[in-house]
Design a protein around this nucleic acid. Structure first.
Lengths: 211, 211
DNA sequence: TTGATTTTGATAGTAACTGTCAATTGACAT
DNA sequence: ATGTCAATTGACAGTTACTATCAAAATCAA
């Protein structure tokens, strides 16, 4: 790796670190791109070249984390069934988040208070979901447009998201892997209520999901 | 209703209509708030008083539609089990979208090309999900923080979203109710792959989900 | 070292949004 | 009808995220 790439990498990293600090101290809206540039010791022009928009700075950590997800799934699914590979990928990404708890909590708190950044995160996750859908489709030998593929991809992202939320709710005390396993068990044991059309026959039906 | 409220209502409506037309014609980014104000025959100041941000203009239709959702669910769930009430609410909101197909397709196409508006939509849906979670929690006599509650709420929104996507994909030809029913059947018949941790025992397990 | 190429920074400009205040309009009692 | 009060509107000035352009500086290849 040449000197150029090395410097670029360090600049990216420094920008994110300094920006997160400022966001945490003064709030997202109150922190200007100019002040971030100053803190990271480069010109606004250069800052914009690294991060075309303010919210991408906050999202950077997420993109770091979730690179793991796709990578682990792709590898693991070569030798194991899809459902297990998804579980592994979920565990992997959650573990990375857990291990950098201070930073993760900071980023989460920023996102909670910054509607634009939060919105961008959702959009990013939707894109991740599409990427995951591609991989799942390959592995299931189904089309990417197959509804089962989309459902599975969305479920995986959902579980990871809920586990991460839960982890944050108890301030990082409990490992999110346990929560994720719990969520998976809920599906396995059918303890989740699925939307379901009313039966058309006159005879009353069993409702194991709801009492 | 006084004259004041009436005028306000008409202004809101006019703004959205004119704005959607302009977005469709020139694109979201290319359409300035000033030009929207001009088209709706009011000053930029007033426009900003009605819609604090540009993306909210696009989202307005969605908020219209999904008021239905919560309302139908709340009513129906009084006399029917939760799973059926969710299905009814999903059908109801999809039917509204289907019935205004031209506008719905326009709004969708705008959102596809406008990252900010799209991102805001996700964020709005997340808020909807929380609202739905409250209702479901009441009905299930569970806490709002219960993971089963969150899963169910998210699943309902997910199914509605996927059905709407599908509807748009075949340009409004097929009713989205059919797609939604299909999605629900997939869950019912377990034709969806759920993430699932590998069994810890040495004995190989059955894998009905994956072959 | 030299020459080509890439990265940086200075500058100017656009448009989304905010805040303030005076003018206007609708509501309402007399 | 008319005067009074409250709410709505619009004009104006300012901030900031973001874009485009181009010359200066740093890096790479020889």
């Amino acid at each position: 790796m040449g000197l150029r790439e090395k410097k670029a990498q360090r600049s990216r990293d420094r920008i994110v670190t300094e920006a997160l600090t400022l966001f945490g101290k003064n709030g997202y809206e109150q922190t200007t791109m100019e002040s971030i540039a100053e803190a990271a010791e480069l010109s606004p022009s250069t800052l914009y070249r690294y991060f075309p928009s303010k919210d991408l700075i906050v999202l950077q950590r997420f993109t770091d984390y979730s690179e793991q997800f796709a990578r682990v799934f792709a590898e693991y699914s070569l030798r194991h069934p899809v459902d297990e590979a998804l579980a592994e990928a979920i565990f992997a990404v959650l573990e990375v988040e857990d291990s950098r708890s201070a930073e993760t909590l900071l980023v989460r708190s920023i996102i909670d208070e910054a509607p634009i950044a939060r919105a961008r995160l959702w959009d990013y996750l939707a894109e991740q979901q599409r990427q995951l859908g591609k991989l799942i489709a390959q592995r299931m030998r189904a089309k990417e447009s197959d509804l089962r593929v989309k459902l599975t991809a969305q479920l995986a992202i959902m579980i990871a998201g809920l586990a991460a939320d839960q982890w944050r709710a108890d301030a990082g005390k409990r490992p999110s892997r346990a929560t994720a396993e719990n969520l998976m068990r809920l599906f396995q044991d059918r303890e989740v209520i699925f939307p379901r059309p009313a039966a058309k026959s006159a005879r009353p039906r069993q409702t194991p999901n709801n009492r």
